[in-house]
Structure formats: C-alpha cells, structure tokens
Simulated assay, not measured.
Amino acid sequence: MMKKRLKKLGPAVAIGIGAGIAAAVLCSVATRETIPAEILANLSPLPIMIAMLGYGTIAGATAVVSATFTVSILFYAHEKFGNLDSAALAGLTFLFFLALPAFWLSLLAVLSRVKGSPNWVVTTRVGSFFAREYCPLERVLSYATSLCATIGVALAIYVSSEYGGFDIAVERLTADIAPVVDQLIGSRMQLPKGVDAKSLAHATVLAAAPMVAGCSLIMMILNLWLAGRVAQLSGQLPRPWPDIAWELRLPRIYLLVFGLAAAIGPYLGGLPGLIIVIVATTLGVAYALLGLAVAHYLTRGSSFRIPVLAAIYVGLAIPVTWLVFLLALVVVGILDTAFSLRDRKKKATEPNP
C-alpha cells in the first residue's frame, strides 16, 4: 500500500521539487541588481503556480517547501549574505511574501464544486469533464489584493521596527538616498520651486511600501495568468479557461474601503496613515486591472478594438504617460463596479425574447 502511494505521489513530488528549485534560482537572480535580473526575479512565483495549476496540491506544496529551502541555501552560499541568520530570513521572506501567496492564488484558481454543493475541492482532470462551478475570479482578485496589501503593510512595520520607529526610519532613509536622488537630478534638471533632492527622497521613502504592494499585485496576477496559459498549452490545466474580461470583478464594498482609505490616508500621517495609503494604493491597482478587463469586454465586436487596446498597453508602457492611463483604468474599474457597465452591455446585446 505504501509503495503504491509513493509511486503515485512520486511524479508530483519530483515536479514540485524541480519547480521549487527553479523558483528559488529566479528569486536569487535579484542579488545581481540589474534590470534583466529584476525582471527574472519577478517571475519567481511562476514555477510554483505552474506546479499547482498543472499537477495538483502535492506538487504545489512541495514546490513551496523546496523553493524556501533552496532560497535559504543560495543566500547562505552568497558572499554578501553568507550567514545563517540572513539565509533563514531570506527563506522566510520568500515563503511568506512570494511562495505561499503564489500557492494560495493558484489553488483558488482550480477550486470547483458540483453545482448545488457547498464544498469546494481541487479540480482534477477527470472532474473537469463534468458540469462544475469554478471559484469566481472575483474571489481570486480579492484575495490577491488583500495578500499584497498585507505584504506592503508588513514591510512598512518591519522597516519601522528595525530603525526604532516610523519617524526615525523615514528620516534616516531620506538622508541615505538624498545624495543618490541629487546625483540623478544633476545640475541641468530644474525642479519646481520648493522642491529639492531631500523632499524628493522623502517622498520616495514614503511611496516605497505602497509601490511594493501595488507592484506585487500586478506581479502575482501576471504570473497567475502566465502559469494558467502554460498549463493550458501543455494540456495540464484541469479547468476551462475563464472569460477574464467578463468574470474579473471586485465586491462593491471595496468601493467604500477604497474611498475612505484614499480620503483619510494622506492626512492621517505617521505609520497608521502609511498603512491606509498602502491599502488605498493596492485597491487602486486592483481597480486598474478591473478597468483593463472592462476595456477588453466593452470593445468586443467593435472595429476600433485593436487600436484602443494597443493604445492602452502602449500608454501603460511609456514612462511619460503610464500614470495617466493607470488612473483612467482605475476610474473605469470603479465605474464598472458602481454601475455594472459590462452587465448593461450584455443586456443591450442580448436578443429580445
């Protein structure tokens, strides 16, 4: 019996170990501090998600454990971090900030149940042939938003505690990066009146944690999409591909949370104010992703679909215009949540009975 069980689980465990090692190697590349290295490091959740989506819970869980230990070993062997404490901290950071969120989101993506049943289970390739109800993408995006906001808050609290307080941390970090900002500005760039290198450095320090939270959300959702496509192309995805443009949503209660956070956070100050700003920023990015889905859905069947979508993606990629396009998508996402723009289009295009 034990031999049969091991024989059955062996391939999934082997795949999980390999995926974990791949994830750890991608993460460790970040120590090279180059742009290509940072791009590869942002793909570190991808192998874990592929293992979970394509090969099941055992493979996904094994990938998490394998990746955590491998990250610790790689950081211990690195000349910059060659001590046990740094290695353990690196492993735990990877576990809680990347590996577990990647595992949880990909697990949600393959949960399903028989229609009418209250119990969610991980979908198998055999089960996918029967009529099933799959975990809503609304829940996946909601959990992803909550997890990434928590990551940003944890980062802010950790840095504050390391420096002995929020104000001290901001002051010291501002002093550390002010010379770098001054060097980047140079003598040729003219700043607005009342703005100098120190004020820019101060704003950069305050924006760091919210940016980490928002970028983490984009990274997780992008990796989940890529992992799903890889699993689908390899024939291992145990569920039909969802209609993302239609199904991606956020609960309406999040509108109230976002509005309150955006209104209160900038004026509260201190660590509590920063935490609220982190929540508002993460929700703003979530609404931007929602706005992108709305743009895909509303332009279906129109002659200007490709130019509009191309303009959006190009605008998001250009440093001068990305913020304008991002804010526009946030507005679209909020309007859809409040007024159900996609539902209205669907009703308008449905044939009358």
Rank of each mutant, 00 (worst) to 15 (best):
L248R: 00
D182S: 13
F130C: 02
T204M: 09
F129K: 13
A149Q: 07
G235F: 11
M220R: 03
D243N: 15
Y158V: 04
H202D: 12
P240E: 05
D167S: 09
G164K: 15
S234V: 08
Q236N: 14
P179C: 13
A197H: 06
Y163E: 04
W225P: 01
R139K: 11
V153R: 06
G186V: 12
A131K: 13
F130V: 08
L255E: 02
D176T: 14
V140Y: 13
C135W: 06
M220Q: 08
I253W: 10
K198A: 08
L147R: 06
I168Y: 11
P192F: 15
P238W: 06
S160F: 01
E247V: 00
G127K: 05
G235K: 02
V257T: 07
S142N: 14
L200Y: 01
Q190R: 07
T150N: 10
G165R: 02
S234K: 13
G235R: 04
R252Q: 10
P192D: 15
I157K: 14
A154G: 15
P242Q: 04
L155V: 09
S216L: 00
A178H: 06
V230H: 08
V170D: 06
K193V: 12
T124C: 03
C215Q: 08
T174G: 08
L237T: 01
G152A: 02
L226Y: 07
S160W: 05
L222S: 11
V212H: 07
R172I: 13
R249N: 10
V205I: 11
R239A: 12
I151H: 06
T145G: 11
I218V: 14
M220N: 15
V257Y: 04
Q232K: 03
L256T: 10
M220P: 09
I244L: 10
L255K: 01
L155E: 14
P242V: 05
G186S: 10
I151T: 06
F258D: 00
Q183M: 14
A131S: 09
T150C: 04
L256V: 12
